[in-house]
Write a protein that binds this DNA or RNA. Structure first.
Length: 479
RNA sequence: CGGGAUGUAGCGCAGUUGGUAGCGCGCCUGGUUUGGGACCAGGAUGUCGCAGGUUCAAAUCCUGUCAUUCCGACCA
């Protein structure tokens, strides 16, 4: 087998042009198509199926922790959006507005939700009266609109699909615990479902959510060393509760404001999958969210018994796996390439020779390793290879993350790394936003990703200004 | 939002000094093939992004506009 031969000529090599490679993959793998509205994309069946699997996995994790799904309206009256000062300043500039209803101009324009804190708060005010009404653990699956200037499929789109959790709690401690718990849910989800290890930590004040007291984030690194904010979890304190006049009668018979959180993961996570795992032959999907986990390719399918056997195997596997049998009349080689491009984790080949031997061939999408296995335990063999694919994806991504994470203790070093080594830079920071601005300025775009939970003490002073350091920050460029 | 590039069949592209739109792949039909993108024969497919303008005549020239893409700026 010509190992390095590029079988899929239509996909630009990622080493040659990563951006073009990304665009090629999303198109050729039939994940999405462009629509006629700027920045709005069409989810094609294969791309939407990935999202459905992500939803199913995350939704189960949320519900296990007691969260309930709700649905809020998509319109936010301007006056409602303006209740919380920082929030409106953060979001108003990128809102899409509805100003007409039918033929008539509206008396108040309506924002199409860029996020739903304000809507949830309006509702919470009505349904929270007593400490007995707390906590409220709500989540909604919906789309939001942000009028972005630069858009890219999945990574930044004008409309995107996501989930947004919104919770209200009696105490600050409980809300803080919820905030951290949900970030942990995201961390587990990224690792267990998407096979993506990531750095987690707290956003600096400069980078935190508009209106939040604290924002926590999961920051996976893409194959090219660029960060993608994979999910965020916010602690609001009682700021929104005060702005929206949400109160409850507490156990001690006083009137109090509840404490609030919100947290979200979007279809951007699909972009993370593509750019973390994909290779020059296309997509590689982590088995947990792959719409097709194993594709069966019959060889010489016109020959007696081949399709029967292929169907038999399919039915056996279909009890536990998402399996597709491609019995179309495309050539075998075409099918191999097609499903490789679409990132199907395991391919099963079954032909006359295999049937004679009561065996079949399994091929891993990651290593292309071919394995001849007995049909007696094909379910177990496929499951084992899927697990192996997952583990290899995690391992590869972890290696990339480690290899592309650098440290800097002086500004010269920092600038050198920023210039020459794509990836993350660990460096000490004094806590002053001026140094964040200076670093971004000097490096042409490197920003703080987060203060990681597992901070190290690299030196005593800020890499930028030399004043005493307060934190270690992970820095990097981002999508 | 600034700078560059692009928009012609599903995809990739050609189209000369303005003169009634072409190629490859794909698609459809029939046949031969089938363990890494098969072959032969035949066939179908266009609001030349959109709107104006110039002209006897516009894919081609002019103006505007929309979208895609790259680089910046902006962005949880």
């Amino acid at each position: 087998m010509a190992k390095e031969k590029k079988l899929v000529e239509q996909i630009t090599s990622m080493d040659e042009d990563f951006a073009q490679w990304y665009t090629d993959v999303v198109k050729k793998a039939e994940l999405m198509d462009y629509s006629s509205v700027k920045g709005c994309m069409i989810f094609r069946p294969y791309g939407y199926a990935i999202w459905e699997n992500i939803q199913k996995d995350l939704d189960a994790r949320f519900k296990k922790l007691g969260h309930e799904n709700v649905y809020m309206p998509m319109f936010i009256p301007e006056s409602l959006l303006q209740r919380e000062k920082d929030h409106v300043e953060g979001f108003a500039p990128e809102c899409a507005w509805v100003t007409m209803g039918g033929q008539n101009k509206l008396s108040e324009r309506l924002a199409i939700r860029p996020t739903s804190e304000t809507l949830f708060c309006e509702h919470f005010k009505n349904v929270i009266q007593s400490y007995r009404d707390l906590p409220k653990l709500y989540n909604q699956w919906c789309s939001v609109v942000r009028w972005e200037k630069t858009t890219r499929p999945f990574l930044r789109t004008s409309e995107f699909l996501w989930q947004e959790g919104h919770t209200m709690h009696e105490t600050k401690e409980e809300a803080e615990a919820e905030t951290l718990q949900m970030l942990k849910v995201y961390e587990d989800f990224y690792l267990e479902a998407l096979a993506i290890p990531a750095i987690t930590g707290q956003k600096t004040d400069k980078e935190k959510f508009a209106g939040a007291e604290a924002t926590y984030t999961i920051e996976p690194m893409m194959h090219n060393g660029v960060a993608l904010q994979g999910g965020t979890s916010h602690f609001f304190g009682d700021g929104f509760a005060k702005a929206f006049d949400i109160t409850y009668a507490a156990r001690d018979n006083t009137v109090k404001h509840p404490f609030q959180t919100s947290w979200g993961v979007s279809t951007r996570s699909i972009g993370a999958i593509i750019m973390t795992h994909g290779d020059n032959n296309g997509l590689i999907l982590p088995p947990a969210v792959a719409p097709i986990q194993v594709v069966i390719i019959p060889v010489a399918q016109h020959k007696e018994g081949v399709l029967d056997k292929a169907n038999e195997i399919k039915n056996r596997l279909a009890d536990t796996l998402r399996v597709k049998l491609d019995d179309s009349d495309q050539s075998t080689g075409w099918k191999f390439s097609q499903y490789e491009m679409k990132g199907v984790p395991v391919r099963l080949e079954i032909g006359p020779k295999d049937i004679e031997n009561n065996s079949c061939v399994l091929v891993s999408r990651v290593t292309r390793e071919k394995k001849f296995v007995s049909l007696d335990n094909v379910e177990g063999e496929v499951a084992a290879m899927l697990k192996q694919v997952h583990d290899e994806l995690v391992e590869r991504a972890r290696k990339n993350l480690e290899e592309k994470t650098h440290t800097a203790t002086t500004m010269e070093e920092f600038l050198d790394v920023a210039e020459n080594k794509p990836g993350y830079i660990k460096a000490m920071w004094c806590g002053d936003v001026a140094c964040e601005d200076a670093i971004k300025e000097k490096t042409g775009g490197v920003k703080s990703r987060c203060i990681p939970f597992n901070e190290e003490k690299l030196s005593d002073v800020c890499v930028c200004c030399g004043k005493p350091a307060k934190h270690m920050v992970v820095w990097g460029r981002q999508y």
